[in-house]
Amino acid sequence: MAVMSLMGRLSAGLLLLGILIVWELFSRFIFPHYEASATLILPPPSAGLRDALALLQHGALTEHALASMRRVYVGVAAAAVFAIPLGVVMGLSSLVFRQLGPLLGILRPIPPVAWIPITLLWFGVTDAQQYFIIFIGTFFPMLLNTIAGVHALDPLLQRAALSLGADRPALFEQMLRGALPHICLGVRTSLGLGWFIIVASEMVSASTGLGFLITEARTAMITERLYVGMFAIGLIGFLQDRLLSRLQRRMLPWI
């Protein structure tokens, strides 16, 4: 059974394997006949692999990856510190919700990358500028999910808790627990989104990070390094999401 399912899984990768082989052969033997700068436009996947190994050995890839990750985590953590408490308050008080609503409604649709020019003016090419972009980009998903979590609380459960003798702090604790799934979803979405945004932000204004790595590769016309950078960004994002969903299952087993 296990062998069968493993075979089944491997056979699902046939198309991917086919694409890689065709690409390799095309880039090596066919494309160069028609295009003088073929290796510049579309190097074979094996060139990417070679470059990845070189970068890993050199330690550069890890260094850039860590720089990007640090920016995402600091930015998201800062956003969480503001967004989650504000979300709880907005969820509980309709006055605060209605008063801050229009202001946040104006800011929310502005794509985080659109903040890059003005923040460059404010902070220059610094880590603070990167943190700010991540902050502004991940603040809203966390805020909105927290509000939704508080709003989704079943009033019946509050009554049930009260009738069972819960006092105010106990009620508040139960309420936070109730909103936790939504809050976790917000944090998870934000980490994914933060990882997306950091790439753009580093491409415009940074001298480290994976976003910088791929822009620099373009300027230096090392196309295979672009593959490496893109793949590394995708892989880290994927692993991060896997880890988070596993963590969530452990922390919130009831959902």
Binding site: I214, R218, L226, M230, F231, I233, G237, D241
Partner: peptide, 10 residues
Amino acid sequence: PIPPFAWIPI
């Protein structure tokens, strides 16, 4: 999983 932004250089 590759962010769309990462396609800009290529």
